[in-house]
Design a protein around this nucleic acid. Structure first.
Lengths: 116, 116
DNA sequence: ACCTATTTGTCCGTATGTATG
DNA sequence: CCATACATACGGACAAATAGG
């Protein structure tokens, strides 16, 4: 499992960690049943706090992407599979946007605006 | 605003705080537009940590019951009004359960089971 | 049935950032 | 510019659930 963060980014660390995990799910490298690395180890390897990693994991749990249990760890749920399908749709959308001369960034802005 | 906790209870402190606020909303003592007491003061008066209160508040925000903004505080949303209505339904349900010889505790267990 | 290691859950304390008024 | 109050991140400690020997 590869989790990366950019300390210079202005997005919250726990959001970066969660996004990193989601990306792994979307790519299929993390599938249902797979276990996420132990929070404390992730924190150590990224040189951030355990609480920060746990908050990321808990957010993923709130999204239904993982199950968390004491002594058992964090396990990817079936919901992660739909992320893979969603990714294909997103890619297609980005492609259509690109064909229209719209960058992924502006597309993201549009999506965000509509979501809100 | 009255927020009470029972240190001897086995439910998490932040859950007790959140439940206390929800009760105020359900009773109508806290209505839309009202402001929740500052987290730091609540923590001080209950002799618990600010984070514990903030976590309770953040949970309430995730439920859509309050709005939280830096420098402005925590404000009750319109969604709180529906809590009042819901309370009436709950009371009615408890009444029907009681008529059937079921205690609120067993009713709660049933509700929980169905929810899950 | 017991014990131990693992791993998340909760709580505390502190510090700094940042939007609001 | 200043005070307020939540947001984020760090650090540490102990509890509780799970798994495995």
């Amino acid at each position: 499992m590869l989790i990366r963060i950019d300390p210079t980014s202005d997005t919250a660390l726990y959001d970066q960690v969660a996004a990193s995990v989601r990306a792994e799910m979307a790519s299929g490298r993390l599938a249902a049943g797979d276990r996420l690395p132990v929070a404390r180890e992730v924190a150590a390897s990224l040189a951030i706090n355990v609480h920060t990693v746990l908050k990321a994991y808990q957010n993923l749990r709130d999204e239904g992407l993982v199950d968390m249990r004491r002594g058992r760890g964090v396990v990817v749920t079936d919901a992660a599979a739909s992320l893979v399908l969603l990714t294909e749709d997103i890619r297609a959308l980005v492609g259509r946007a690109a064909a229209l001369g719209l960058s992924p960034a502006t597309l993201a802005a549009l999506v965000k605006e509509i979501t809100v």
